[in-house]
Write a protein that binds this DNA or RNA. Structure first.
Lengths: 192, 192, 192, 192
DNA sequence: GATGAATGAGGCTTCATTCAT
DNA sequence: CATGAATGAAGCCTCATTCAT
């Protein structure tokens, strides 16, 4: 029933923690191995090389985030509610799993992220991107501002990113009330 | 009147270009030296080590950006106009100097950025932060939403960051019309 | 009647192919195991370690070559005919089994080969070396040049080795006519 | 006046000795560095990587051998004398520099050798190959057997190779008398 | 001051061998 | 007997920094 062996999970977890905390270059394979409690060579049974470990870990996190977002998503509600829900869920997910946020951030801001970005632009990303869908529908229904979809996305997601950073370093505290205020501010930004 | 020798400037420029393009780990000191047309050891006459070179370069860029922003800043205008002006200027500055943007981004997303952020929170940053001033005044005048200053900042600056990324990779084209639309969307986000 | 199990043969065959093609260092035990269709640990049931596998494989090939050479060997014929026969048989054997040639070559040109050579000099090699016998008889009968036996051997076998190399890489084509010419040239070299 | 720095020569000499004695895989870069009395990284100032060090060393040795061969070469003498001279010189050179022989042997019997061989066949080797010239002229003058040039070469050079091996391991002693006998035997092999 | 050759610690990866299942 | 996951020593290479010239 377990698809992944224990050692593989241990490696993934160790890599997640180290990379999230110290970045790709602050996380040598030897240290990942040590933290995972496995031999250095063991990592290579599961991941061809460090790049693939990094990419694979990104994919796993993305899948989890997407799943969390889709779970309970109010498909039938109006656009505004769906947008607010999605934003709040992403906030909550990352607040619950701050390492995931830090990892995704590292990944996004790295040569890997470039490829990712390009693929996403070209629609190669396989997952149903909820925010993008919302923005596209919003354009059709003329509920949102007449700005390119990707611009709307950047406004919402860029805000979220910096706010998460501040939350994680303890500069602000993203409680439900604040999250509500923020997501509504974002809605004001994109709505017509 | 020149505080810094030519060689120092050459090093700084070479470091800027290499790091902006390839990141900190893609810019070995030897390569920076070569690009600057100086010996590898020479760098160490001006900068104690690589970390200090990186930090110093960041400070220089920040000073330039601040200067560009202050130049022509409409102090007397209402808050809204000042906000729109500031955002547009930052966009224009980074569009003119994409290497500066890329460098600042690298710096921000790195262990260095952590320190920077912490210091900024503690008010150690010496420069007069225009955006922050605007947000603080907006709070006093009750023109802006009742959100923490740093939250307002993140909404504006987070949006800007992602949009600049997309512009630099050529995914969107930030012409004046689009910039106007974006800055107004950001204003909608923060205004009461 | 089978002294060796099937798995042992599979390992030997896999090792032969891999080593012949890629050399000792291009043939990891894991890959040999995979090609043989057995577990990596299984190899160690039959061969204490890689060195022993390599040495053992060499012995097996040598036995086959000797057998092929002895089969049909014209014991009664004059020296010249026996020499020509032996040379031609070796050529034909290696042309039929190029992997065997390549393996022997690898073995000969390696630290293993040193030991082999030394042992052969000391007469430790158990097999009846036909060429050596011919040379020794030739010396007794004063049909061959007054050169040490091992020198005569080197002339014949050294020529053969390089020619086989050229044949295998496709630079020359060792057809029967050419083989006849070569073996007679070798005979001219050694005959008085 | 010194084209190569001392360190470079030290590295080359250390590499020559180690590789000649133990083969490419028995000569780790770290050990070469240690034997040369330099830091491990220093090697990489002179040679991009191990492959290039190996190839470069081969080129240097080949140049020396060619030079030794050409020095005193009796261009005006008949074919037979030139062949005997060339063979004897090669023997003498390798007897004087046994490490050179062992290195060339290693190189020849390795993936590097394959390329070398192919290039030589294609005439890409820049040096004036004396033996090959002799064989070609011999074919024209109908002094030599009607065998492909490369076959004549293999007979002479293959013999030489094995004999050098035996000499180096001390199995035979290649004194002038023996060398004369061998080279004449080789002449008998190739002459019509 | 300026240079750049030299250094060696440290990073990634391979692979012969072991051993629990 | 057979397996193959696990190990870790060892190999190649990079690069920040130093120092003799």
């Amino acid at each position: 029933m377990m698809k992944t062996s224990d050692k593989r999970s241990d490696v993934v977890q160790a890599a997640l923690e180290l990379i999230a905390e110290k970045g790709f270059h602050g996380a040598p394979m030897a240290e990942i191995a040590e933290k995972a409690g496995v031999g250095a060579g063991t990592i290579y049974r599961y991941f061809e090389n460090k790049d693939i470990l990094i990419t694979e870990l990104h994919k796993e996190l993305e899948a989890k985030i997407t799943a969390a977002l889709l779970d309970g998503y109010p498909v039938e509600q109006p656009l505004r509610e769906r947008f607010l829900y999605a934003m709040r869920e992403v906030f909550r997910y990352f607040i619950t799993y701050p390492l995931h946020f830090r990892y995704m951030e590292q990944y996004f801001n790295s040569p890997y992220g470039i490829t990712l970005h390009r693929d996403r632009l070209l629609g190669k990303s396989g997952d149903p991107d909820i925010l993008m869908d919302i923005f596209e529908q919003g354009a059709d229904q003329q509920v949102l501002k007449a700005l390119p979809t990707s611009v709307l996305f950047s406004i919402a997601f860029g805000s979220l990113t910096l706010l998460m950073r501040d939350h994680i370093i303890g500069f602000i505290s993203l409680d439900n009330h604040l999250i509500d205020g923020i997501t509504e501010a974002c809605w004001d930004a994109i709505k017509k």
